[in-house]
Design a binder for these strands. Sequence first.
DNA 1: CGATGTATTGAGTCGCATCAACCCTAGTGG
DNA 2: CCACTAGGGTTGATGCGACTCAATACATCG
Lengths: 246, 246
Amino acid sequence: MKEYLLSKGSAFPDCGDCPIRRQAICARCSVDELASLDAIKTYRTFAKGEAICYAGQTITHVGTLVTGVAVISQGLEDGRRQIMGILLPGDFVGRPGRLVSQYDIVAASEVVMCRFKIGAFESILAESPALGPRLLEMTLDELDAAREWMLLLGRKSARERIATLLYLIATRSRSLGEVGDQANFTFELPLTRETLADYLGLTIETVSRQFTGLRKDKVIDLKGQRQVKVPDFPKLYAETGDHPDG
Amino acid sequence: MKEYLLSKGSAFPDCGDCPIRRQAICARCSVDELASLDAIKTYRTFAKGEAICYAGQTITHVGTLVTGVAVISQGLEDGRRQIMGILLPGDFVGRPGRLVSQYDIVAASEVVMCRFKIGAFESILAESPALGPRLLEMTLDELDAAREWMLLLGRKSARERIATLLYLIATRSRSLGEVGDQANFTFELPLTRETLADYLGLTIETVSRQFTGLRKDKVIDLKGQRQVKVPDFPKLYAETGDHPDG
DNA sequence: CGATGTATTGAGTCGCATCAACCCTAGTGG
DNA sequence: CCACTAGGGTTGATGCGACTCAATACATCG
């Protein structure tokens, strides 16, 4: 629960140096707009496991996740839990116009956020010609992702769910130019089995079994328990159950 | 596949007469903005079962659903299908900036849409101060709905899913002031068992069984196969599995 | 009246959850 | 250095809930 308030100087004093400048909500801001945001931004670090906000809680800030991974989830009365989204650097947290969070948002690793008081942000949003469209675009992307996940949760088998997630992460980290040639591509899974299970709507035991199943069938290869090697992308894709087109 | 092109005069010549004027994307438009939209709008009717657009298809129009019900869905290679959203009067179809649909959108009843060519709409969107924020607001609401559904699809039992859907519809139609006093509230389910099943991530048989189960336990009462009576709201809510608060 | 689409009910099966034991790794402190 | 502990992961045995397959009922329509 310790709060680290970083001075402007200690994180990214100049938004131009910000590592997520090009993906974040401010991606298309003019110099002036950026200056307005810069003037009201503060950085805050959240420890691994710390809540960024709880469902039902009043929201005071919105902002952008700068480093780390966080998770949006919701629980049922008896403890069952579903993760509805994973927040990565560049993702926006909070929604204008809503003062009470619907979900729990929890840091899955140490997280740094670039935050704005919600009122101040809304004022700037109302003036800025670039912020609104960018926020709309990001929200529509999230909506698409959510809908794709609804198909996974509603209709896919456990094996297909794992394959889908691995294919998704592998494809994205490959396009970001991570290590490995085509036939020997390896990436790291930044999630525990429990997080995986809550994200995929499964139990940790089932997740584990499906991993070993895919390994035995040579669809993937596991180095340690977080390193995943994909020797054959089409083979992995064939396990996702998805339509070849679209 | 027959297309009905209505003249301006035959549907809602004046946007002021439009039944969904207050919920739709144009809800907060000024007189001038409304006039711009009015100038480019055309009405089109889709027959029950007709596709408004298919996944992978190039999109030519966006627009608002005026009357009827449509369904957003996606299929897997072997025919499994998941409905990701239900479109009701006032809902917006299509997203600016995307030229290829990700999903199938199919009319579940006869549907009338108020449509705009996508390019023309985007031009107006870029100019209008009211349209963007309204679209953002609607998209955020859809995202919330999608996330709530992810919890249902990932973690709820069949009975909880049915109860959740019935509670949702009952609550909303009650707030719209439909028939029946508190203890005798009745509404109509506008969906077939198959649509229900695809929406809830179940099979039609399971849906049917859960309906009779809830009826036997006196949680609901069925008149015919579409009329649902809710004698006791808290009792229905208790079946949803949801957290009492939030 | 048959025909077709929609809904219910039953019997049997299977996939995933549950419960439980065990393994592995990293961190801690004696 | 090693015993101890705790968190995360794997594997096995068992049971249940939802799916599958199949028969029957009901409704609407020509």
